[in-house]
Design a protein around this nucleic acid. Structure first.
Lengths: 400, 400
DNA sequence: GCGATCTGCTCTAACGATTCAGCACTTCGG
DNA sequence: CCGAAGTGCTGAATCGTTAGAGCAGATCGC
């Protein structure tokens, strides 16, 4: 339960007991499609009780290439070559095969194809830390949007794997690669020490890392310059707002991202030419930890002028703590975050942050992975995408 | 660009080596390797950087069952049966095979296995509407968390498919099933009219729908009672707060969810025993549309006492519009939303809403799908999970 | 002592797609 | 008019896995 949820009233409503109260109704048209509402059958809790044995299952006959070939009257190989647009197949045959294929609804069996080809058409997205806390983060959603866009463009399926449990000495997501269920993987947000990722890279499996992995300098990666992003925030606070007593709430320091953001912050302060003081509190990227860290900061550094949290969620946690002490943002304390996945936009005041182009990262990672699978080494090995400094009200800037 | 983003200053920081259209800027190297291409790199085909042919690729030798068998000195079938714990294989041989398998890092080839078995072990999650707007919604994130949890528990891979484009007369996500890349699919958030979903159901493919599909009464589904949820909100506003002039901002009315929520709202008002007035504005579940709809409502119904938006994002948009007119929430106008995926918790004041148990829905849908794939018809066909009314400050309630 | 049963394995045939060698047959150059 | 090249297809092999038939050798019942 997060901080904000603690003081809410919650009424639980259980499902299917309310069937009585449903008067016949009509839907206001407003120029839209009017749904056919009559069918009561799909009513929740409706058809309860009976149990039919599965009969329909037999119906789904799979159409194979052989069926198509037979329908046309050519050999299976001819059909295959026709669909592949092989030059040694006559146009007439190709046309006939295509027609039959469409008519019968032929879809090539991916297992057969993958087996023959020696590799799958799918790619995997791997999120090593399991648990809602990490996987449920909007970052992945955005990343996924980018990856799917690219995968769709190439007619490739996308496998999502999150399970680091080792079944037979191999993490589940490595098994996805080794079993050839996916031709390659995009690895997001591994902690610095995750040995599984190293193993995949060492095994020369096609892997693209999202983020910076200092101990894997030769693996292809996509990321933004986190250090520069944090530095941009720091400079904004110091130079644009003249704040010199600043606290940083970092993420867990076994995450490269957390380390980089902290480093960018410190470096920028040091290079600012001003006399700056700073302090550090370590969080875990959760809202709750941001709140705790802010408490610690406010207790120990009474004259703090600004707090820069390593992500927006912690910044939001800090905002709650700051408010609970009757302090105003930005008048009494300025606040900044990092990520810009939505949270920072919704708060009042909006939180100044670095916009991380997660979708573009996903797209790019996928593009590179496809190249890698095709046997091309990306150049450069590490792709760096631009970020944006998004200035909102929490730092004291005035926006229209 | 959403409403809230409109009035922000954004500084873009790009990687070095930009195209001319953007101002040059500073990306600090700080120990990074080669930096990168920016927007240009997003185009996979565009004649960009050089590429070295991969050499490492040859290294990854795949271990097959034959290798294991040879290592042990038995036939391939014996090895297969040993791993399957077949009773006709001696314990000694089984042990030897298991040992060799672990030592060599054998992972069964999923294509081979799927081909032989006639079906894949993976399941698919299908999100018919493509585009970030829908797919990027936190709802899917939560749903996915639930589905992966269940899939992980069964050692099944998860395929995510979003592409409704018909490549050869078949939507991409139907192809996932037909190609046997996945044994079955969970379909989330299809619009009422999506013919592809119908086709999959008609073809007796193993499909579990999330939500209510009135026109597909026999397909297995999982959902909550949306009508009852909306009714709970309406009753709270009318009975607990005595509000009688209420506007509803609905989602697009070709979405069953939008229709159901609207209906629950109207029905509850009608049955409240009070003299209620209501009005409707149609949005599209986006924050921006919520803002527009609120504008419309406030212009046309000057004495409106409450606005109930069909989801939290539109409620947030409405909040922005209400505020921009100098009205207070909840003193001047009460506000309620639906979904509780986080947005409503972060705003000030927090938005009263219905908590949709998306993760549980995902879990349940996956469980049912696995049964379906195994040939069991679920009973009941339509599973309804409980929701919660979450009372926050936006409706005028006071929370501790 | 000898058929019957059991044990522990091997052999073979699929699953569906692709590819390559090869086979008829035509066309063509000289 | 004959070898060479070109055209359009077929047949067979292959990818990795698994299931079922079958086959030696040991064990057992009587």
């Amino acid at each position: 339960m997060t901080a904000a949820e603690r003081d809410e009233h919650r009424d639980e409503h259980r499902g299917p007991d309310r069937d009585a109260s449903r008067p016949d109704s009509n839907v206001v048209p407003l120029g839209r499609d009017t749904p056919a509402e009559g069918a009561d059958a799909n009513r929740p809790g409706g058809g309860r009780g009976r149990r039919r044995p599965t009969a329909a299952a037999d119906k789904r006959a799979t159409v194979t290439l052989k069926d198509v070939a037979t329908a046309v009257g050519v050999s299976q190989s001819a059909a295959s070559m026709a669909l592949a647009d092989h030059p040694r197949i006559s146009e007439a045959t190709k046309e006939a095969v295509r027609a039959a294929s469409a008519r019968l609804g032929y879809v090539p069996n991916s297992a057969g194809r993958a087996l023959r080809a020696g590799r799958s058409t799918s790619i995997a997205v791997v999120v090593p830390q399991t648990g809602q806390h990490v996987f449920g983060h909007p970052y992945f959603m955005h990343l996924l949007v980018g990856v799917t866009a690219e995968a769709n463009a190439r007619d490739a399926a996308l496998v999502v794997s999150t399970n680091p449990d080792e079944s037979h000495g191999v993490a589940a997501y490595e098994r996805v690669l080794r079993s050839q269920a996916a031709a390659g993987a995009i690895v997001a947000s591994a902690s610095i020490s995750d040995p599984n990722v190293n193993r995949m890279v060492d095994a020369a499996l096609p892997v693209v890392l999202v983020g910076r992995f200092v101990h894997l300098p030769h693996a292809a990666s996509v990321g933004i310059d986190e250090v520069a992003g944090a530095a941009a925030i720091a400079r904004h606070l110091v130079q644009d707002h003249g704040l010199t007593r600043i606290a940083h709430i970092s993420g867990p320091l076994n995450h490269q991202t957390a380390v980089d953001r902290y480093e960018g912050f410190r470096t920028a302060l040091a290079e600012s030419g001003r006399q700056c003081t700073h302090t550090l509190a370590v969080g875990d990227f959760s809202e709750e930890s941001g709140m705790l860290a802010a408490r610690q900061v406010l207790d120990s550094m009474s004259d703090v002028q600004a707090i820069f949290a390593a992500n927006d969620e912690m910044a939001y946690g800090a905002m709650l703590e700051i408010r609970s002490r009757g302090l105003r943002i930005p008048e009494d304390i300025a606040l900044a975050g990092y990520d810009d996945f939505g949270v920072s936009r919704l708060t009042t005041p909006g939180i100044t942050t670095i916009h991380v182009p997660a979708e573009a990262l996903g797209r790019q990672a996928a593009a590179i992975l496809f190249d890698l699978v095709d046997g091309t080494t990306p150049d450069p090995v590490h792709t760096v995408l631009p970020f944006e400094l998004v200035i909102r009200e929490s730092c004291g800037s005035h926006t229209a």
